[in-house]
Design a protein around this nucleic acid. Structure first.
Lengths: 153, 153
DNA sequence: ACGGCGTTGTTCAAATTCGAACCTCTCTTG
DNA sequence: CAAGAGAGGTTCGAATTTGAACAACGCCGT
């Protein structure tokens, strides 16, 4: 790695804009969820994934990978949600080591209660700030990044 | 707020792709910096801003706003960097309440040492995964978001 | 069946984050 | 010029995050 391929002006502009925008967006999203729904964003994401998974729930490892978070972090958050009765956890029948998590009726209710405000906020800090072509371009770029990072590591 | 404006399919796809991509990108960037440079990403960002600010340094509040972080979080990180001699802090001559922070020669050296690996990583997890039009579109969208969030709050 | 290796989830300690409270000081207004 | 409103930073406590270490278990070839 003799000489570094530095970022040119355009690349640097893209990176710094990305950095600043993500910080702003997440700060606002987290504040809204905490203040109005009493949920952290990680917790909300867990509930969304588990709601989508249905009655079978999801294995902890799958959930962690899906949320792009650490195993230990997920253990903690699921524990918090379980304490509040929004999520429940059970051993996997086919693998003694395994644990699955699933959303409870109370969890679904909490999600239903939180979703409208969250959706509005996501609009306010990202979606509604862009026109359709911009939004499509953003989805395209982010999708490309995801595909490449999922595979090529 | 009678009826919620839910996200349509395209909007939801953009949001989830954005979510997943940002989590992936930051996870990888943070791991590289920590493992190879012994700096957290927040710390690296502080050094970059202060290096750009030059000898006059930056007021804490300005720096916090620039980094889109909380005041208390910044106090902590600057404290950490100060302990390591990478940053120094002094009272503002024109405002007794004010504190400015600036990078030290050691800090500049640490930044120089960390920069190449960081640049490569930024390429590997974002820049090099996109072609020029995608990169331009990303910069455009993120720039729009930043402008709107900076003003309209 | 047996031994080795990778997987699964949790636990642990340490570092970090945030908002709210707080103190000090500046600025504006009457 | 005094008083109130606010800005600037730090401190505080509580919650969260991470990787590494662990313990327990499946899987595979011999």
């Amino acid at each position: 790695m003799a000489n570094t391929r530095w970022l040119d002006e355009q690349e640097m502009a893209a990176w710094t804009a990305f950095l600043e925008a993500t910080h702003r967006v997440f700060r606002e999203v987290e504040a809204q969820l905490r203040d109005e729904a009493g949920l952290s964003h990680p917790q909300y994401e867990v509930l969304v994934k588990l709601a989508a998974a249905g009655a079978d729930g999801l294995r902890m490892t799958v959930l962690a990978a899906s949320l792009i978070t650490s195993k230990s972090g997920l253990t903690y958050q699921v524990g918090q949600l379980e304490k509040r009765g929004l999520v429940r956890r059970w051993e996997c029948p086919t693998d003694t080591r395994g644990v699955s998590a699933g959303i409870t009726p109370d969890g679904l209710e909490a999600l239903r209660a939180a979703a409208p405000g969250h959706a509005e906020q996501v609009r306010a800090v990202l979606i509604d700030l862009l026109d359709r072509p911009q939004l499509a371009a953003l989805a395209d770029a982010m999708g490309t990044v995801n595909t490449r990072l999922r595979d090529g590591g």
